[in-house]
Nucleic acid binder design. Structure first.
Lengths: 359, 359
DNA sequence: GTTAGCACTCCAAAAACACGAGTGCTAACA
DNA sequence: TGTTAGCACTCGTGTTTTTGGAGTGCTAAC
C-alpha cells in the first residue's frame, strides 16, 4: 500500500470519519474548520485532489464534496486502533439461559445484537460436523417404525423416525443398539466411512438392511449440514438512505431472506478465517463473497469452540457504518461466547451443564 | 347488505375487476368501452355516482376515476364464484417428500406458495397441543444428564436433556421408563394434570424429584406452543407500488420478520375459523386482526387434520390482489394437505409412513 | 332513461428557475 | 516552496410555473 505522509493520513482520516457520521460528501471547508490541523480549505483542497488521484477518495460529481472509495474504507478499517475503552455488549443475561435450548439462545442473541447495533445481523449456530457421536439409541415406535436418537458430543440431539418393513423384536433391537454403539461411539461424522459401515452391516446379519437405513438416516440427519442460520434486523437497512432505494432494498432483503445464500456466505467467511487465522473479518463492498452486497460492508466474528465446532456472527451495514463500534462489539461477543460455551465444552465431561439441542 | 340492481352490480364488478388488474383509478369511459353492457360513459358516470353514495366506491380526488372502498372489495369477494376451472397449485411433488422432516416440508411449501402467488406467505405448522403421547423414553447420557425423548401421535418427536444431581442406575431408569409410560401413554397434554402427576410421583418414591423435572421438561418441551411459523416472499410487496413507500414497507417487513406477531395473527385467525366454521377466510384492510396490515388484505386457509391438529396458510397482499386465484389456490392446498397428511393420520397405525419432527 | 356536449377541476409530468455548496485555478504572500 | 485568498464555473437540489389530459358533474336534447 502506498505510503501517505502524516498530514495526508490525518486529512483522509478526518474525511472518512466525517463521512461515516453524516453520510454526505464532505467538502474542503468542513475539514478545514472541524479538524485540529490548522489549514485553510484551499490547502485541504489540494490534498484532497491528491488523495483522489491516489484512489482513496472520489467525488460523486464535479461540484460535490468527496466520499471514500473502498480503498479509502480499507485504509480506515486497517488503522482502527483496537477498542480502547469503548463500551461493549454484555451477554451475561443471555448466558444465564444456557441450559435452555440452543435454538432459543441463538434466536435471542441475534435479535439482541441486531437491536444493539441497529444493523442487519446474521448468526450461524455452531456446526457439528466434527463432533463425535456419544451414543445412538433405537426404539420401537410401532410395528413398522423405529425411532433413532443420536446424541453427539455437546449433547446435541438429533432424532428421526425410520420406517421398517418387518417389526423388530425387542431383542433384535437391543442387539442392534449394542452393535451400533460399539462401532460408532466416539467417531466423528467424517470417520464414519464405508469401511465402518460395511463392517457393521456384516455383523448385523439379517438386519443389514435395517442397519443400512438406520445409518443412512443417521448420516442424513446429522450431516444435514446446511448451517443453522438466524437472522434479525433486516429492516434496519432502511435507516440508511444510500441502501434504501427499492432496487437495492429488494435485492438485499431477498438475499437476507434466503437462508441458503447466507449459509454459503458464512461458509466462505469461515474459509477465509481458516486462512487468515484471525476471527474478525471486515469485508468492504466487493470484498464480500457475495454480489448482492457490493454496496455494503460485512463485519464478521467467527467463534471457535475447538474440535472444529464453530459459528459466525455477521453484521451487515452500509460501507459507512461505525466500524469501530461494530468491530469491538463483535470481538467482545466472540470472546464471551468462546468463554461461556467453550468452558461448558471443557467441563462437560465432568460436571457440565450444556444445553440441549433441536433435532 | 344493500340490494343493488343487476346493472349496478355488473358495473361495480367491472370497475373492481379493472382496478384489480391495473391498480389505477378507473374512469367511466374505460368501463363504457371495455364492458359488454352497451352504455355510454355518461350513464356509467351516473351509476358510479350512485355507487359512491352507497359506499362501494370512492375517488382519490375530484377529477380522478373511482377505486373500490373496503366495502366494495367485500362485495367483490363475497360474490366470487368458487373456482370454476382455474388452474390450481399441485403440491404432489412436495408431498413425495413426506417421509422427510416436517420442518423441511413446510419450508419448501411456504416458499413454493410464495413463489407461485408472488405474494408474502406465512404458514403455521400443525400445532400439537391436543395430540396424544405415544411413548416417552429416558436414557442416560452421562452421569449427570439424562435424555428424555417424547414421541407424540403423528410421530412428532421432542427431546430434551435433563440435568440430574445423582447418577441413575440403569435399573432405576428402566423402572422410571415403565412408570412414566404406563401413566402417560395415550394422554393429551391437557389430560396430564396434577392428579396424574402426583400419582406418578408417589409411585416413583425416592425418584420423585426426577419425575418432577422430567415431567416439567416434558410439558415444557411439548407445550412450547409458540406456533412454528414459516414465512417466505416478504419482498413481494415491492411489486405493488401502493405498498412500497418506505413507511409502509418497513412496518410491514418488520411485522413479517417478527414471528411472534405472526403467531398471534394466526391464532386470531384460527379463532375466527372456529367461530365461522369455514376454513377459508378473507380479511380486507381493517378486518384483519393486526393494525400494521390495514392497507393489505389477508387470505387464509386453515387446514384441520382432526384432533385439534391444525395449521394455517396465509397470504398477504394489496387489497387489489387477485382474490379469485389466491382463494382457489389456498382452498386447493388446504384440501391437498388435509387429504395427504390427514390420510397419513388415518392410516398411520396400520402402514403409515408419517414424517419425523424437530424438537 | 339515455346520451352528447361542455365547462371545470385537479393531478402529474415537464420545464424553468434560483440557490448554494464545492471545486479548480491563479496570483499573491511568507 | 508551501500556503492562502479570491473568483469564475459547475452541477445537483429544491421550488415554482406551465402545460396537458383524464375525468367529473351538469344541462339539454333525444
Amino acid at each position: 500500500m502506498e505510503k501517505l505522509n502524516e498530514r495526508k493520513e490525518s486529512i483522509l482520516y478526518a474525511i472518512i470519519a466525517n463521512y461515516l457520521e453524516t453520510g454526505e460528501p464532505v467538502g474542503s471547508r468542513t475539514i478545514s474548520k472541524s479538524s485540529d490541523l490548522k489549514l485553510s480549505s484551499a490547502t485541504i483542497r489540494n490534498e484532497m485532489s491528491d488523495l483522489e488521484e491516489l484512489g482513496f477518495l472520489t467525488s460523486p460529481h464535479t461540484s460535490a464534496g468527496r466520499i471514500p472509495t473502498d480503498k479509502g474504507y480499507r485504509f480506515y478499517v486497517d488503522h482502527i486502533i483496537s477498542s480502547k475503552d469503548r463500551e461493549v455488549l454484555e451477554v451475561k443475561d443471555l448466558m444465564i439461559a444456557q441450559n435452555e435450548k440452543m435454538e432459543k439462545f441463538f434466536k435471542e442473541l441475534v435479535s439482541y445484537v441486531a437491536q444493539n447495533t441497529q444493523l442487519p445481523t446474521v448468526i450461524s449456530a455452531p456446526s457439528i460436523t466434527k463432533n463425535r457421536v456419544k451414543f445412538v439409541q433405537l426404539s420401537n415406535v410401532d410395528e413398522d417404525h423405529i425411532l433413532s436418537v443420536v446424541v453427539m458430543d455437546g449433547n446435541v440431539v438429533r432424532n428421526n423416525v425410520i420406517k421398517v418393513l418387518n417389526p423388530l423384536s425387542n431383542d433384535a433391537l437391543l442387539k442392534l443398539n449394542i452393535l451400533i454403539n460399539t462401532h460408532l461411539t466416539g467417531l466423528t461424522l467424517q470417520q464414519i466411512n464405508l469401511g465402518t459401515i460395511s463392517k457393521i452391516k456384516e455383523q448385523a446379519g439379517e438386519y443389514a438392511d435395517i442397519i443400512e437405513s438406520v445409518l443412512n438416516t443417521v448420516a442424513d440427519t446429522i450431516s444435514d449440514d446446511d448451517l443453522e442460520i438466524y437472522t434479525s434486523g433486516a429492516t434496519n437497512i432502511f435507516k440508511y438512505p444510500e441502501l434504501s432505494d427499492s432496487q437495492n432494498a429488494i435485492r438485499f432483503l431477498t438475499t437476507f431472506e434466503d437462508k441458503e445464500d447466507l449459509a454459503d456466505l458464512i461458509n466462505d467467511v469461515q474459509e477465509d478465517v481458516a486462512k487468515s487465522g484471525t476471527g474478525l473479518q471486515v469485508y468492504i463492498g466487493d470484498e464480500a463473497p457475495i454480489q448482492t452486497m457490493k454496496d455494503c460492508s460485512l463485519v464478521t466474528a467467527t467463534y471457535d469452540l475447538g474440535d472444529g465446532v464453530k459459528g459466525t456472527i455477521g453484521i451487515i451495514g452500509p460501507k459507512r457504518m461505525d466500524y469501530e463500534k461494530v468491530m469491538t462489539n463483535l470481538n467482545s461477543l466472540k470472546n464471551q461466547i468462546e468463554k461461556t460455551l467453550g468452558r461448558a465444552e471443557e467441563t462437560r465431561k465432568n460436571n457440565g451443564n450444556a444445553g440441549d439441542e433441536k433435532v
